[in-house]
Amino acid sequence: MKKPVSLTQEYIKGLWEINPIFKQILGMCPTLAVTVSAINGLAMGLATTFVLVFSSVIISSIRKIVPSQVRIATYILIISTFVTIVDLVMKAKFPELSKALGPFIPLIVVNCIILGRAEAFASRNNVLRSFLDALGNGSGFLIALLVLGSIREMLGTRTIFGVQVLPNQFTPWMVMILPAGAFITLGLLLGFANAFTKWQEQKNKKSVLVR
């Protein structure tokens, strides 16, 4: 029996320790596609978190009555229900954002983070823990999207959330708002995240030795 994890830890771990983007490398497609600007990243992050939290709670609450042979199909149906809700609400309330994100809102269905958390966590933990885990992973995803979107928007158009942050003398790097910029920025970020993790591990080792 594993020792029980505290409830706060259940939430916190999603932010960095098992961050969907930087650590699990899941859900790459929306990450790369929508982060042309910070606001798009924020919208996508919120939409995904919404779907993740609600489907995790439902899946966790019915985990004992779903036969394991049909569980994946059941999960996909539950997830696609919530995605449809998000899609319709976005179309009605934020038509511009919905147009900018295009098919990537419906594509949340196949985002591996959601099915991944459903299978790895919600299907074997209680509702409260699944809720916190989903919220943590969603927040981690949101943070990653915001960082990526802000960097690309800043270097590509001199602004963040439409507010100018770099002086006019700075020549915008066109490549940043093109698909190529997405790949390169995320590649560099992942590399730095790996380097940071290594550095942290080494520091921990040293402090253990000192003690």
């Binding site: 490398i25 698909p179 790949f183 390169i184 995320l186 590649g187 992942l190």
Partner: peptide, 9 residues
């Protein structure tokens, strides 16, 4: 993965 992404870029 990081270098793969950069190459893809």
């Amino acid at each position: 993965v990081p270098i793969t992404l950069i190459v893809a870029g």
